[in-house]
Each structure stands twice: as C-alpha cells, then as structure tokens.
Design a protein around this nucleic acid. Structure first.
Lengths: 233, 233
DNA sequence: AACGATAATATGTATGCACTTATTTTGTCA
DNA sequence: TGACAAAATAAGTGCATACATATTATCGTT
C-alpha cells in the first residue's frame, strides 16, 4: 500500500494529467473551462481550481484569465531540490559528520563577492573556510564571506566549534537567495583539502543570501568527485 | 512598480514570513492556530490556510494535523529549476541554435542504462548522440538511449533533422523522471566534441523518464566549462 | 507503571456563493 | 481600415460552513 488511490482534488489532478498523457488534451490544446469540468466530473469549481493550480505549479499547463487553460507545448522539466545543511546531508547517508575550520580572517571583500552581493564598493567582511567531513573523509569544502555590516555578531562566534552556516541559519534567517551550480577543475590547494587530485572535476555550489536588501553571506562550496544532486518526480 | 504591494492572501503570506524573519515566530516555534490568526488578522480561515500552504510549499514551515504549525528549525534551501529544452536555452540568451546528429545505432542497452531504467535485463534500444550548438559553437553534448519497447516509432524518425528530445516531448510525454547533476572530467573524445581540452571539468545532467512504469529514455548531457544552472528566490 | 481505548484538537478538504481582475472579443465611430 | 471604447469571458480570490482525518492528550483498566 505504498500509494493508496488518491481521492478528492488529487484524484482530479491525476485524471486531468492522465488526459494530457493519453492525448485527450494534446500539447497546446485548450482545456474545458473550470466550470464545465466541475460539472462533468461532479464536483465544485473550487476543487477543479485546486487541481488545476497544482498542474500549473508543476509546469504542465498554463492558465490565463479569459484565455482559459492550455497544455504547454514544450513542457520544461521543473525540478525541485532541497539543498540541505552539510550535517544533515551526511547524516542522511548514515555516516558520521565532522567539521573543521580551515582558516578565518577579516578582510575586504574581493570583487567577485562584492559584485555578487550587489554592493558598490568592497567592505570588510569575515571570511571562513571550512571542511565538512563524512566518516572523517572530506565531504565538502566551503569558502564563505559574511557581511560584518549585516551580521556584526558573527565576529564573536567561535567558528572552530560551530559551522558558520548553521549559526547563520539559527540566528539570521534569509529572505532571498541566489544559487548557482557549475563544475570546475580542482586547484592543487583544493585537491589537497578534498583528498582529490589536482584537476579533478569538482561540483560547485555558489549561494548568496540576503535579508531584505542587506547581504548576509556568499559561499562557494566544492564537492569532490562522486558528489551528485538528485531529484525525482 | 516592479512589485506592487500584494494584497489578499499574498499579503498574509508576507506578514507571516516577516514575523518569522524578525523573530516573532523563532526557529522551531509554534504558530497560532489558523483560526486564531484569521481572527487576529481579520480574514477567513480559508485565506490563512492558503498563505500557510504557500509557506509550507516553500519549506519554511511545517504543518501537522493536531500538531499545529511550526517554523522549521533547520530550513533547507528549496530551489526550483526549470530545465529547458536546449533550443530554448540557447535562444533565451539571444544566440543562434544549431543541432547536429553525431551518431545513431541500435544496440543492447549497457548495464548502467538498464539499471537506471529499472529493467531486469538489457534490451535493444536506439542510441543517439547529438550536439547542440549556440552560434555554431558546442553548447551541450547528449548521449541518449531510447527504449524501442516503449517507443518503437522512434526508429523511423530522422534524428538528423529533429532532435530526439524534442520529438519525444511532442509525441511521448512522460509522467515521471529522475534527474542527477554532477561533475566529470572530459575524456579526449568528449573534449573533442565540445571544443574543450581533455580533463576539463564538465557539468553533467543525467535524466531518465517514464510513462507510468514504462521507461522512455535515459540521457546523459555534458556541458563544457562555463555552463551553469541558476536559481533565485 | 504500562497499555489501550477514547476524546479532544488543529489542519485538510469540499462546497456554494459572490465578487474581482486580466484579457479577449466585439462593436462603434472616425 | 484602423483605433479606441465597451462588453463578455474565464480564471482568481474571499468567505462561511461543514465535515474528514491525522495526531496528540487523556483517562480508565489491568
């Protein structure tokens, strides 16, 4: 009983999805009005609305006032990823989590960080480089800049004990972010830290967060070969 | 007027979000019952529900029957990516799209593909290798296996003209997928095709799709250095 | 104290209705 | 013919209400 037959608006959602899959409503086709579908399927328009909104959120259909509802001709693959805290990600695989501060300094932000944060001029920031471990082996290396203007308290936190990421999440929630995935060859220094060879392909996650318009932090996280992000739907 | 002050349930959503950000509802804290919030904010419970559901979808709060609503202590970054068709992705950046079939064969599926598709034994499948171009330069290389058992018609399609991906999207919609992002060093052959150097870090997207339980296709897409996936919220 | 049935509770879902808003269609006038 | 105003349309939103369902809390029995 892994998937009990859904009832209610989920059933409706599936019915409509099925009709899209089997061609009843082909790519680009227009669907009946909510009211008509409600009549046909014997439920309230509100319920149809609900099912339709779910399908629209998934990127399967497009809804426009007066224009009606139509099946998207070129569906995109809409993938949702949950980027967990390193600790959770490690523990989820049943391994022991470890954390190690590699370096800490206060310095003017480099141009790349200044720009990414949307600042007009470099600022003095806290830079923390740290290593996340899984079963004592390198799992991910992060190079983080934290705005002292926005989060002055971070200067007094002992980052050798608590990861900057976790401290920030607990004390300084963010309202916006940008996220960037890419690949890069490991430098000699990075390879050394990650237990890889220079030139190895690393998975790169760059993330910046803001609270309102105030920048909080920008971090570049590097994962050694073997790391992958997975999604399914 | 980029962001007209929201009204209705969006305003409510923002109000609650704000209270989470400013600590009124701290990490792990329990929020008032929907009915109470509705009373306090002067609206119907339905409207609170709507706002709450939005926040829950974003991964900010957790709702449980009888348990009430609470702020997640360790919020994950929930990122949504739209993986577009290569043609659209290229055109979105204002460059000219090009497509080129590199190789086509019918062969038994290798173990990796057989396993990824959830099959118990290898099957004869169509393999198509193709290159997507942006302004005549390599943009992405894809190595695709298509199940002839599920999509026999594909054998009769001239893949030199139409990309397998676009043909499949138009004729054989999928109901489920898996998606995997990683990084890999380019082999000599891959580097050659992508106009890169052997060993360069490539961004790897692996995707398999199904219609119900029938496997449709598995594709490995390789992007040359410089490629990145971006999300913001 | 341990267990299990039972009650209480907060969210989930469904419905009918009224009204709003974006967008297209239509119609009129220049 | 074209441009602009007005009407029509289909989805979006809000509310009051009722009932469903999952979870937790309570209480009585052994």
């Amino acid at each position: 009983m892994t998937a009990p037959d859904p009832t209610g608006w989920r059933a409706l959602r599936n019915t409509i999805h099925q009709r899209i899959l089997d061609g009843t409503y082909g790519p680009g086709a227009r669907l009946p009005r909510d009211a008509d579908l409600a009549m046909e399927l014997g439920c309230a328009r509100t319920t149809v609305q609900r099912a339709m909104r779910a399908l629209a959120d998934e990127g399967l259909i497009e809804r426009k006032r007066k224009g009606g509802t139509r099946v998207l001709a070129r569906p995109v693959t809409r993938a949702t990823f949950d980027i967990p805290v390193a600790r959770e990600e490690v523990k989820a695989t049943g391994r022991a989590y470890g954390y190690q501060l590699v370096a800490r300094e206060i310095a003017p932000s480099p141009h790349s960080v200044t720009a990414a944060m949307g600042l007009s001029a470099p600022e003095r920031m806290l830079r923390a480089q740290a290593l996340h471990l899984a079963d004592r082996r390198p799992f991910m290396f992060e190079d983080r800049w934290i705005s002292l203007a926005t989060v002055p308290e971070i200067a007094g936190v002992d980052l050798a004990v608590e990861s900057a990421n976790e401290w920030l999440l607990a004390h300084r929630p963010y309202s916006h972010y940008t996220l960037r995935f890419s690949a890069a060859n490991a430098t000699a220094a990075q390879a050394e830290l990650l237990g890889a060879r220079a030139g190895d392909a690393l998975f790169v996650i760059e993330r910046c967060t803001w609270l309102g318009t105030a920048p909080i932090t920008c971090v570049t996280a590097l994962a050694p070969p073997g790391y992958a992000l997975i999604s399914r739907a």
